[in-house]
Amino acid sequence: DEVRLHVNGHTIEFRGIDEEIFKILEEAAKRGADEEELRRLAEKLLR
């Protein structure tokens, strides 16, 4: 299960996240989070 999030012209792939987590990451990206911040956030949410 892989999703792709487009951030500042880059595509970031995440594996094993559900739609709810994806929406949180998408919102963070809209607020200016970079790839590293998004990955840290995803790790926290998946715990």
Rank of each mutant, 00 (worst) to 15 (best):
R4A: 07
T11M: 10
L38I: 13
E2Q: 07
E13L: 14
L38A: 00
A28T: 07
R4C: 04
I24A: 08
H6M: 08
L25S: 00
F22N: 01
I21L: 10
V7G: 02
E43Y: 14
E36D: 12
G16D: 08
N8W: 01
R4Y: 15
F14Y: 04
E37L: 09
I21H: 07
E2V: 15
A28D: 00
E36N: 11
R47I: 10
I17G: 03
L5Q: 01
R31K: 09
E20W: 15
K30F: 14
H10Q: 11
R4G: 04
N8H: 05
V3Y: 15
R4V: 10
K44L: 13
H10S: 09
N8F: 02
E27T: 12
K30N: 09
V3R: 15
K30R: 12
K44W: 15
D34T: 11
R47S: 10
E2T: 15
E19G: 12
E27I: 10
D18Y: 03
E13N: 05
G16T: 02
A29Y: 12
A28W: 15
L45P: 01
E43N: 13
I21A: 10
A28V: 08
D18M: 04
G32N: 03
R39H: 06
E19C: 10
A42P: 00
E26I: 13
A29F: 12
R39A: 03
R47D: 08
I17L: 08
R31E: 10
F14R: 00
I12H: 01
K30M: 12
A42V: 13
E19P: 13
I12D: 02
A42F: 11
R31F: 14
A42M: 08
D34H: 09
F22M: 06
T11P: 05
V3H: 15
I24R: 11
K44V: 11
I12E: 03
A42L: 09
G16C: 07
T11L: 07
L5V: 07
E27H: 12
G9P: 02
E2S: 13
E20V: 14
H10T: 11
N8D: 07
L38W: 03
E36S: 13
E27Y: 15
E36L: 09
L25E: 00
E13I: 15
E20N: 11
A42D: 00
E37S: 12
L5R: 01
A28E: 07
G32C: 04
K23I: 07
I24E: 06
E36V: 12
F14I: 07
E13D: 06
A33S: 09
K23M: 08
A33G: 05
K23T: 06
A29L: 12
A28Q: 08
E19W: 13
V7Q: 02
D1N: 11
R31C: 08
L5D: 02
G9I: 04
E35V: 14
H6E: 13
F22S: 03
